[in-house]
Nucleic acid binder design. Structure first.
Lengths: 130, 130
DNA sequence: GCTTGAGCTTCCAGTCACTGGAAGGACTAT
DNA sequence: ATAGTCCTTCCAGTGACTGGAAGCTCAAGC
């Protein structure tokens, strides 16, 4: 398979696939013409990466997960730990966004949003000292 | 005020304040020795920026909000619109994270996390191809 | 055989909002 | 005079791509 076909099937842009090769996540073969030649195994890895990225794992986490995936001697505890640490990060981000959301939604409610200049949103932002 | 004091009082690192000057958000004066000389107005702006950034507004949004803040002729509707668009983005991010969280939490529950290699998390990731 | 267009290659630069570090000048206290 | 802290500028790196330029390869049609 060339990069276009594998991109289609893995659901990743060709640019991203080249980038993943650059950083050593995959190692496709090369045809005589210099084109990358992807095998099923590469496609499978790329799909794995796409799914892991969609779950928000960092590239370094993906590297770890891929290594665990290829290691038939792995202990599932190792995988679970990576996933649990990621879940903690996700929860932290959600909490931060919820907090922003609450403040912002409150300010928006207070603001009349008309042609007059007085605005509780700007008042809040400008009252940030202390 | 020098940059150290204003950094302390605005709650922003000096590096960030220099960066904000670089991109034209603030324009502190200069003392004869080449040091930046911040006035109350600059401090106020920096605190405004810190608060807006803490609410997740992008730098470009901050630029807009700061301009509206300084424009006594503004209509509060303009401010409200910027804030509402930002709220939509926050909601989208929260939804995305909640979706990731749900999938990940489910997979983590399923995984025994012991010394054996079989792992529903890796199985899910590797089953990404249709 | 030639042309056209799509697909592939590499390389460089840009994104966003900083952050770290180096090299060196200015100020303060002893 | 010295030491230590604060300030300056400039350059490079972060994460994970993404856009674009310049050029090679391939398949189809005339």
């Amino acid at each position: 398979m060339n990069i276009g076909e594998v991109a289609e099937r893995a659901g990743l842009p060709p640019k991203t696939i080249r980038y993943y090769e650059d950083i050593g996540l995959i190692r496709p073969m090369r045809s005589a013409n210099g084109y990358r030649e992807f095998r099923d195994r590469d496609l499978h890895k790329l799909a794995f990466l796409g799914r892991a990225r969609a779950l928000g794992f960092s590239i370094e986490d993906c590297r770890t997960l891929l290594a665990l995936y290829e290691d038939t001697e792995r202990e599932s505890a190792q995988v679970k730990q990576v996933a649990q640490e990621h879940l903690v990060q996700i929860d932290a981000k959600i909490a931060q966004l919820e907090s922003m959301r609450a403040t912002l939604a409150h300010l928006i409610e207070e603001c009349r949003g008309d042609h007059r200049p007085d605005c509780p949103i700007l008042e809040d932002l400008s009252a940030a000292l202390q």
